[in-house]
Amino acid sequence: MSTWSKIFTAIRGGVNEAAESVADNQAMRILDQEIRDAEQSLRQARSDLAGIMASNKSVARRLEENRAKETKDSDSARSAVSAGRMDLAQGLAQRIATIRSEVQRDQEELDRLLPRQQQMLRTIQDTEARITQMKREVENVKANESLLKAQSAIAHSQSGINTRLGSAVESLERIKKRQEMTAGRIEAGAELAALENGNDLDRQLREAGIGGSSQSADDILKQLMAPGGSGEQLLLPAPSAKAY
């Protein structure tokens, strides 16, 4: 296959795909229009059938009337023969012949139209049943289409919600990390300040039990009351006796 043939085939394939895509997107509209067209054709067929049935009834009615005339003229002709009126009998016989010719023609037409009438009636009934079934299927397809659209919308919305929730969780984690870093910087600043003013060294000495720790009033009182304690040094000496 030449290059130009391949390109032409590819273009044809693209056109067919585009046409099928358009047809799929407009499937419901096309199907509704096809059903409307079928119903219009059905109405026309009913009208044609009504015309055929009216024509058949007219022919059948004329056939019945002619047969009644033939019977009457036949009786009259026999009466004329009995009465010796051959002239009247001859005239009646001629009219009977004409009536029989019309009866034959009408009967042939009726025999031709009645099968067609029955065939059209069956076709119309079958078409009505098919259109009714098609309408039910179309309603089911439309209901399913609406349901699929709703489910698709829900799935799309759920996907968006999950995406937004995932983004929110990531933002929350970033906030937590930033807060931890801020708290760490504050603690580090406090430690640096303590080192600068010596408070940290005093704290470490107290924790090690080194240095002049202050005593409470209770500790001092215990020292004063202890025998031989340093409290004796705090007593004032007694006054000496005067010589007279």
Rank of each mutant, 00 (worst) to 15 (best):
L92Y: 00
T123C: 06
S216I: 08
P237G: 04
S21W: 05
Q179S: 13
S55W: 01
T3W: 14
E145W: 12
S58R: 05
S146Y: 13
A80P: 00
R112E: 05
E207A: 14
G228R: 12
A241R: 10
V59H: 03
A89W: 00
Q107E: 05
L192G: 08
G209V: 01
E109H: 05
H156R: 14
A243N: 15
S240C: 14
G14V: 06
R112D: 05
A226Y: 15
N66G: 02
R46F: 02
A143W: 04
P115D: 04
A208S: 12
R61W: 12
R36K: 12
S167L: 09
M225F: 11
L92W: 00
A89F: 01
Q179I: 12
E137L: 15
G160Y: 02
A60N: 03
T163Y: 02
E180K: 14
S41A: 14
T3G: 14
Q233N: 15
R116P: 01
R61P: 02
A168W: 04
R100Q: 05
L92V: 01
R61M: 11
K222F: 10
A19R: 09
A143Y: 08
K149Y: 09
S79E: 09
N16F: 11
E191I: 09
A77V: 01
A168I: 05
M28W: 07
R105D: 02
S82W: 14
A97C: 10
H156K: 13
Q33M: 09
D202Q: 11
D24N: 05
I131M: 03
E145S: 15
L221S: 10
T3R: 15
S171R: 13
R67D: 02
A188C: 08
E145G: 13
M28N: 04
T123S: 11
P239E: 14
S101A: 08
Q179F: 11
Q158Y: 07
K242Y: 15
I7M: 10
K176N: 13
Q204V: 15
E20R: 06
S2A: 07
V81D: 01
L195W: 10
E145L: 15
D48T: 04
G184D: 15
I99M: 03
E109L: 03
Q107V: 02
L88I: 09
M28E: 11
K149I: 09
A54F: 03
E232L: 15
S79N: 13
Q26Y: 13
N16A: 14
A45V: 03
S74E: 04
D219F: 11
D111L: 06
Q119H: 10
N197T: 03
E109A: 03
R105L: 02
N56P: 03
L165T: 12
R29T: 10
K69D: 04
A18C: 11
T71D: 06
A38V: 02
I11T: 08
